[in-house]
Write a protein that binds this DNA or RNA. Structure first.
Lengths: 226, 226
DNA sequence: TAGGGTGTTAACAATTTGGTAATCATGAAT
DNA sequence: ATTCATGATTACCAAATTGTTAACACCCTA
């Protein structure tokens, strides 16, 4: 099994769903933890440090989106994959979820078989593009090896922090990165910088690139999109 | 012996294999270190800075793929050859291994004789392009054989360190080399030199070449481009 | 042992950068 | 319409980083 040993936390208020899913994931070599409401999800997440967290949106105590927002604000969950369980066609939840730093969605109802294959694919996705390769989206090419960005093949010179910030945002196009996440990742969790620092860097990137590829999500963070 | 003095690290949890292989490699002039699990492999790799690392895939503590992934994430192991020992026909390991930056595979069971000849061939493969091939980019020609650089066919005399530095940067045009990478490669990991040493050498190269082919990436390193 | 080439360092200059404060713009809420 | 919260913008300054120069030590070779 490719992803054996990975830890998964599932939070849902329906015991049946919890049991079926966790049983099937365990069969495939995953270590599974469960939570039946939002508060418990946060607690167990801290205790077990899972690689993947599956959150039902509708839960008692705290709903999935709140949980996600809280977890994403902490550096230790920077690289944790967070996905939401949503009712089919619940567009609103999808939008809200992405804004709060979710990596993907799984629509209910869901068969155990599909669930397992989805989970497998999450880990495959995470493992692969970790390190080196260039990101190319539309007319924009980001080449970490060269610390260089190209717009329509025109090289654009970004300073170190600017480049790192853009590269981070572009690592998951469409996904919103919370201001906290950005601070943790680009500045490090110990460093303390002022509120406006991110804005200023975003501005410099926008200015140098000349095109609008970074979208502001008010009260939340920023995302990269073409 | 072509590759005498090269350092090799072997990690395998079976003492017999470890002993037979290391004995035979030592006979052929290699300096051999061993590790019996993944954690020890990482530790010894850092201590001994081997030129070649042979990793059994199935090991306690950390398996070979994990070890490879961790080592490859560090610049000092950029140029280290990493090969896996795998069970015959273990396709999955092959695929995963290559993804994490393995250079090749050796299938078990293996005879000492074949092992030695394989190891020799690794070093032959690696040694060659370093010494023989001339790099030609635009008006600049770099000929490692002669320790000489030509600009529009005019020979330019660079000192040894200057030449090695230029040659290293030019080995991957466009790619940024971190100051640390440069130090490790040109000065070696044990040597400690001052902050300004690289700059001074860069300056001498720029001065002698007369053209601007080395770009500074502030806070990161240097890169060669035409 | 004198001299040229080489590698390193130290000191200072020049440059880039990253961060902040002050101010302005915008949109949502009252 | 006014207020409040949030982000955008701008200009400025301090710190970090690199460039430059000169001096020194070292090793060959003559």
């Amino acid at each position: 099994m490719v992803s054996a040993g990975k830890k998964i936390l599932i939070a849902d208020d329906e015991p049946d769903i919890l049991e079926i899913i966790s049983y099937n994931l365990q069969l495939h070599g995953y270590e599974v933890f469960t939570a039946k409401d939002g508060d418990q999800a946060i607690l167990k997440a801290k205790q077990t440090q899972p690689d993947l967290i599956i959150l039902d949106i509708m839960m008692p105590k705290k709903n999935g989106i709140e949980v996600c927002k809280i977890l994403r604000a902490q550096p230790e969950f920077n690289d944790t994959i967070i996905v939401f369980l949503t009712a089919l066609n619940d567009e609103l939840s999808h939008v809200k979820g992405l804004e709060y730093g979710a990596d993907d969605f799984i629509s209910k109802p869901i068969s155990p078989k599909i669930m397992v294959s989805k989970v497998n694919s999450f880990f495959r996705r995470i493992n692969k593009p970790e390190t080196t390769n260039a990101i190319e989206l539309g007319d924009i090419k980001i080449v970490p090896d060269e610390y260089m960005v190209y717009f329509k093949d025109q090289p654009i010179n970004l300073a170190k922090k600017e480049f790192e910030l853009l590269n981070y945002l572009a690592s998951k196009p469409g996904r919103v990165f919370l201001r906290n996440e950005i601070l943790n990742r680009i500045w490090g969790s110990e460093v303390i910088v002022g509120d406006r620092t991110i804005d200023v860097h975003i501005r410099k990137i926008r200015q140098k690139l000349g095109i609008d590829c970074i979208t502001t999500v008010k009260g939340v963070g920023y995302k990269f999109e073409i």
